[in-house]
Design a protein around this nucleic acid. Structure first.
Ligand SMILES: [Mn+2]
Ligand SMILES: [Mn+2]
Ligand SMILES: [Mn+2]
Ligand SMILES: [Mn+2]
Lengths: 215, 215
DNA sequence: TATATTTGTTAGATAAGTCTAACAAATTAT
DNA sequence: ATAATTTGTTAGACTTATCTAACAAATATA
């Protein structure tokens, strides 16, 4: 049986390895709020179970088996988030923490029912793709809002931060998923961005623009 | 923080102490599928936390504090079961095991939303009352079908066993919650019961009749 | 290159929850 | 009343997941 802790490690390693920087012990430590030696012993355990490949002092990556298991948990997480928003009426900024718990429910039936009720959904409320039953993910080719040239208009399709603070901020300034965003101007010094959304002009900081994924 | 194991013990102790026999170590052991020494050490821990009152070799009972916590978990369990049936379309025989997991979700918001969606429900799909936010339960005065006199007609309002096996059996023989049941005859030797439900005559064993609560 | 800083590892401790083996108390049967 | 059986307790071990303290390797800085 896979434990709750193991599931969280697998998921975190998967998510970290999507970045160019890859999964290192210190990054995991920060992400999971767990001290380095704990990461060390846990990653060793996962390596024994052949879920991660691990060389001392080098980073680590998921094996195929590990990736498959990580994607199972990610599927549960994202299905849950969508269910919470669509069926239970939660706001997109409220669901991540709840899903962080619900994703560990073992019952496959529970999630199959969600999938059925939501008619095989492809994306969660933050625009992230929901892996299918076999762990397949659609290839997406998203860009950061912070990298789009001035003058272009793009579609906001996902966020890379699902924290309540960030999402509430976006809602507050009137930016919601699938909005069209026109890049009016960008300050070279700090990336401060002037955009137009729904005919309203707003200014976003560089940090915020880096968390907004567009196509 | 209350752990998952603690929550299961509190709930089991509460349920056992509803029977005349009360909560003993061996009954808990059987109910939770855990060996006796484990029960012993856990009950000692709960006593330290002032959740149960405990005298060596005598049984144990929940303190007010313990009862309140048990009822919180029971509320989550029963709300979940009803949500699964009413909103997610599960059958009444499928929900107990799932609820056994979901009841441990910490997020209060999650259950408040269920309560809202279900409009403050009073009973779960097995006829058991759902404690309100303060742990209050309606007084019910139910009888066992096995004790009803011949000739009477009663209303089936709850079961005392939510196992899939038992509930599937009831569905199979066409007995559903809130049916009217007429007692046609009872065999003195073994309690074998002849009843009429929806104008169909059926025979139930004594064991089954003891798990059916009526008014 | 030598030193300082960051990152990773080992050792050892702790808490939660479980187990088996051995024993003791209470209850039931003879 | 004694013996047998059931029920409860203690002792000690194990696993999982975490921590701190001490140390080692790798990387960055001077
Ligand atoms: Mn999320
Ligand atoms: Mn989680
Ligand atoms: Mn139940
Ligand atoms: Mn449970």
């Amino acid at each position: 049986m896979r434990t709750l802790a193991e599931e969280n490690y697998l998921k975190a390693i998967y998510n970290l390895s999507q970045n160019e920087t890859g999964a290192t012990a210190s990054k995991l430590s920060e992400k999971l709020n767990v001290k380095l030696p704990t990461i060390n012993s846990m990653v060793n355990k996962l390596a024994d179970k052949e879920l991660v490949e691990y060389k001392k002092y080098k980073g680590f990556i998921l094996t195929e088996k590990g990736k498959k298991q990580a994607l199972e948990v990610i599927r549960k997480h994202r299905l849950t988030e969508l269910f919470l928003v669509k069926i239970m009426g939660f706001g997109w900024e409220e669901v991540h923490d709840i899903a962080e718990e619900v994703e560990h429910i073992k019952s496959p039936l529970f999630f199959e029912k969600m999938d059925l009720i939501l008619s095989n959904p492809k994306y969660d409320p933050h625009g992230a793709p929901i892996p299918d039953k076999n762990g397949k993910l659609p290839k997406t080719n998203l860009k950061l809002l912070s990298n789009i040239e001035i003058g272009k208009t793009v579609r906001f399709v996902a966020v890379s931060d699902s924290s309540s603070d960030f999402l509430s901020y976006l809602s507050r300034v009137g930016i919601s998923l699938y909005s069209s965003i026109e890049i009016i101007d960008r300050e070279v010094f700090d990336g401060l961005l002037k955009i137009k959304v729904n005919n309203i002009t707003t200014t976003l900081s560089g940090q915020v623009a880096e968390k907004i994924l567009v196509e």
